[in-house]
Design a protein around this nucleic acid. Structure first.
Lengths: 118, 118
DNA sequence: CACGTATATGTCTAATAGGGTATATAAAAA
DNA sequence: TTTTTATATACCCTATTAGACATATACGTG
């Protein structure tokens, strides 16, 4: 259970994170919404907490869990080099689509950038 | 081994992907650079191929492996909602830093946006 | 054809993780 | 103080997975 990816590999954990993105939740809240047993929720929360994905505060008997940003940023950082790679692919796709457009209407010059970029 | 995250959970597989981001590589190339046994490399490549992370072409006895973009885009898409969340946190951090600046020089009005956005 | 090279696959094993049930802890409510 | 509510943890069991080693397959070369 080293990397952030190990943590995210577990579907229930991803589900929990998905819940927490809207607002903080107690263990019981999560338990009900995801239909998991309470010990299972607690265990996953423990893993998430130790990996820095979530933190908790005490509210009487409840613990309120909320997201922490760092590990997500790690994933994003890991993705960066590949993002460069795949946007190259998207550009190729665009050029391909442009070419198809031009084949339908050959009068249009192939000056590029006819499609809008994101 | 359902989701893209299961695939990425394995460190050797991430290493392989890291190699392939620069250019395509044969199994032997990967084996040498990562110091893994050949069967191990082949098995991980199989997993990666079946998950759509890589594809291969035949070059005599060699197989050349290269990246495919789709699964990376999936990860990026999964990250999107959380990205909104963590950029909110970055904004909060910025506000905090601005406030610290202002405490050093209280004459500066707290009109915000004194730091440049990315 | 025999041999070397490159890759894939099969088998076995050890390690690990996740779920279930029971139980411990702690705080609120009666 | 007893009981109830909320959460954490311990223990056991099972399934999955990665790696090592052996072997199969396929192509090229002498």
């Amino acid at each position: 259970m080293e990397s952030v990816f190990d943590i995210l590999a577990e579907p229930n954990r991803r589900a929990i994170l998905g819940l927490l993105v809207s607002s903080q939740q107690s263990v019981g809240d999560i338990e009900r919404q995801l239909q998991m047993t309470q010990p299972t929720v607690s265990k996953h929360l423990r893993v998430l907490r130790e990996a820095g994905f979530v933190e908790s505060t005490v509210d009487a008997q409840r613990r309120l869990y909320r997201l922490k940003p760092e590990p997500f940023q790690q994933v994003d950082a890991w993705l960066a080099p590949f993002r460069r790679f795949w946007s190259a692919h998207l550009d190729a796709l665009e050029r391909h689509l442009d070419r198809m457009d031009n084949e339908k209407d050959p009068s249009t010059p192939t000056k590029g950038k006819t499609r809008k970029r994101r």
